[in-house]
Simulated scan of single mutants.
Amino acid sequence: MTKQSVRVGLFVTCLVDLFRPSVGFAAVKLLEAAGCVVEVPAAQTCCGQPAYNSGDRADTAALARNVIAAFEGFDHVVAPSGSCAGMLKHHYPRLFDDDPAMKARAERFADKVHELVSFLVDVMEMPDQGVRWEATATYHDSCSGLRELKVREQPRALLGKVEGLTLTPLPGAETCCGFGGTFAVKYGEVSTDMVSRKCDDVAATGADLLLAGDLGCLMNIAGRFRREGKRVECRHVAEVLAGLRDVPAIGEGG
């Protein structure tokens, strides 16, 4: 199978669909540039992570069955989110321990799941796209992408090819921003303290642009920056890699 014949099903994610469609458009642009044929199944729904983290296995399993059915025909399933990709890849098979046939389907599905940037680097070996973005940036590693999917060097490798972009290390880049989906709702005070510390670390780098691969982290951090009156742009890494300069930063009307 040649790279040009690779069929990719894009799992858009709820946050991208509802709050930041530009991330989805950027993902499609990057995947097509890498030689993929991209489709976005209309039947896809939430991955079920909020229900799963709240202990609702029945509703999670129902969502998982639907997602698996919608994406089974693709060579690869790609999500612009380490959190959602981690759910699809590592947690779906565990939902069906009492259903051997469905568990086998979930395992075959999980084998095809990738986080966007790691897929571009590790599978498609994406070449330099000739993008230019003048900024000093720093990068936040999301918990699921880093710990469940081992996504760390891949985004930095691609960002290193962006002309005009200076990438500066972020102290505590591997520390949680405090979002954690329902964690931010259930433990608001703890979450606020965590994201405030993260904002302090970002500001200390002197960067004017914060990048990450998970929209939940970015919305959480951008919201805290806004409340603290600090001006640091927050963007999904795919938007920069795709050169979407006309899209406002997260929390600034986009």
Rank of each mutant, 00 (worst) to 15 (best):
K3S: 12
Q4G: 12
S5E: 13
G9M: 05
L10Y: 02
L10W: 05
F11W: 10
L15M: 15
F19C: 12
R20D: 11
R20Y: 06
R20E: 08
S22M: 07
G24R: 15
A26H: 06
A26I: 14
A27M: 09
L31C: 10
A33Q: 14
G35T: 12
A42K: 15
C47L: 07
G48V: 11
Q49C: 11
A51I: 10
A51W: 08
A51Q: 15
N53K: 02
D56C: 06
D56M: 07
R57S: 13
T60L: 07
N66Y: 03
F74G: 01
F74L: 03
V77R: 07
S81E: 07
G82P: 04
L88S: 02
H90E: 15
H91M: 10
P93T: 10
L95I: 05
F96C: 03
F96L: 04
D98K: 15
A106C: 09
E107D: 06
E107Y: 02
A110F: 06
K112A: 06
V117Y: 04
V123T: 14
R132N: 08
R132A: 06
S142T: 07
S144M: 10
S144F: 11
G145K: 02
L146R: 13
E148L: 14
L149V: 00
K150P: 14
V151T: 15
R152V: 03
P155S: 11
P155D: 15
R156L: 13
G164W: 09
T166V: 15
T166M: 07
L170F: 07
L170C: 00
L170A: 03
P171A: 06
G172V: 12
G172W: 01
T175F: 08
C176K: 10
A184D: 03
V185P: 01
V185F: 03
G188M: 04
G188W: 09
V190H: 12
T192I: 14
T192L: 11
V195L: 11
C199S: 04
C199L: 05
A203M: 11
G206S: 08
N220G: 00
I221A: 03
I221P: 00
R226T: 08
E228L: 05
V232H: 03
A238H: 09
E239R: 05
D246V: 01
I250M: 11
